Amino acid sequence: MLTENPRVVFAKRPGNSIPIPGEHVIFESSHSTIDLDGVPLNGGYLTKTLMLSPEPFMRERMRELSVPSYSTHAVLGAPLVGFGLVVVLRSEKEGIKPGDRLYGLTPWEAYTVQPYIEGRANYNPAEAPDYTFDVDALSLQIVPDPKGAFPWTRYFSVLGAPGLTAFCGFEGCADAKPGETIWVSSGASAVGMVVVQLAKAKGLKVIASAGADSKVEYMRSLGADVSFNYKTTPIAEVLKEHGPLDIYWDNVGGKSLEVAIEYSRLHARLIMCGAISEYALPYEQRHGIKNTNMIFKKRLRIEGFLVPDLAPRLAPRFYAEMPLLLAQGKITAKEYISEGLSSGPEALAAVLREGGNEAVGKPIIRVALD
């Protein structure tokens, strides 16, 4: 018996814009069907998608084919691929059984025969730049049932890619010491909210910024010592009063980075995690940093990172420490839920808008209950 398999498809490259729902990213409710009982598994396993996570890195994969970056290109006409939580319906793969739940990269569709191979015929690792990593490396992994200690949604925030990003970047790059001052831009984001809490646990003074008053209150509830709306309060004004900075966690790039350089202390560390303000802008419209001379004058350390570089060393600590801290209530998270796969295109667009939206917490798309 055939069952409809709705999906969210990458239909058109967005150029220098945020992907527009219905044009660049399209929900298809009845494009394909699947025989859940008879579809060949070829040694793999069949999964049902429960939840999906819109992430900024998905926009980077939509870039033009001529533009190199740290990830492979998304495939036109195929479902989007992002982090998700799935449940196994059937399996021919040793070590994976029906009922298992897995978290990792998966296509944005209701049902999938795994492992899903995205555009492999067009991908040649030998031709990829040496700074590119293959997104297929972030494959689905079985996750334990929290058994009520915390909700499954935490695998998309504190215990998922955002939490691992925050942990690896902070522990691997910050060299933080009690009493130092850190500014976390986009401090109410999925990554930023974890950085705020890690920094407070380490004994730092935390300055955090976001683009909505509701997010300012949320950052304050996480323990931020100074929490402000950068759209209504000048960044320089805040840093002049509450700095200088020992550490800057950059999620936005552009003008914010320039101001951070201006108000950094000698030997400060600037950790480059993202640049949401620039993802959809052509180069000629991006903000040029005008005070780069201060980098050598202040002997600043500016360091970019990607999780796959640091995870081999730090992921074991992350998976040992963070679930316990979460269960004990020492680390917390907030999420907001969009219902149904049809909400996917707009949920992704909202993540990519600078300042996001008024909703607070990690965005999650709930596709199915079980």
Rank of each mutant, 00 (worst) to 15 (best):
L222V: 05
G192L: 00
K177D: 08
N229V: 13
D250C: 12
A201R: 15
E217R: 12
G172A: 09
K255I: 12
G254E: 02
E262P: 10
A199L: 07
S264C: 13
V194A: 08
V259H: 04
P244S: 12
Y263C: 11
Y248F: 15
K205T: 13
E241C: 06
S214D: 10
P178Y: 02
A224N: 04
S185C: 13
H242D: 09
C173L: 15
E241G: 03
M193Y: 04
D213I: 07
T233D: 11
L245R: 09
A199K: 03
L198A: 02
A201T: 03
L257S: 00
I235R: 02
P234I: 05
Y230D: 02
A176R: 02
V206F: 06
M193K: 08
K177W: 01
S185T: 15
P244T: 11
E241N: 11
A190E: 10
E237C: 09
A210H: 04
Q197D: 07
I235L: 14
P244G: 11
K240R: 14
A190I: 07
A210N: 10
I261H: 05
L204V: 06
Y248K: 03
S227H: 07
I182V: 15
V195T: 04
I207L: 13
K205R: 15
L198G: 02
V259P: 00
V252P: 02
V191C: 07
G187S: 06
M219W: 04
G253A: 08
V206S: 00
G172M: 03
H242K: 14
L257F: 15
L204H: 02
P178Q: 09
A188Y: 05
N251H: 10
G223Q: 00
Q197I: 04
G172E: 02
G243C: 11
V259K: 09
D225C: 08
L245K: 10
D250H: 11
V194M: 13
R220L: 07
K231S: 13
V216D: 00
D246V: 09
S185W: 04
E237K: 14
F228K: 03
K200T: 00
P234T: 05
S227G: 12
T232R: 14
E171N: 13
W249C: 06
K255S: 13
K200E: 01
T181E: 02
N251Q: 14
K231W: 08
W183N: 07
I247F: 03
S221T: 07
G179S: 11
V252Q: 04
A236K: 14
S209D: 09
S256M: 14
A210S: 15
V216C: 05
F228N: 08
V252T: 14
Y248V: 11
G223D: 00
G254M: 00
E241K: 15
A201F: 03
S185M: 10
E262K: 14
V184I: 13
S264I: 10
K177R: 14
S227I: 09
E241W: 09
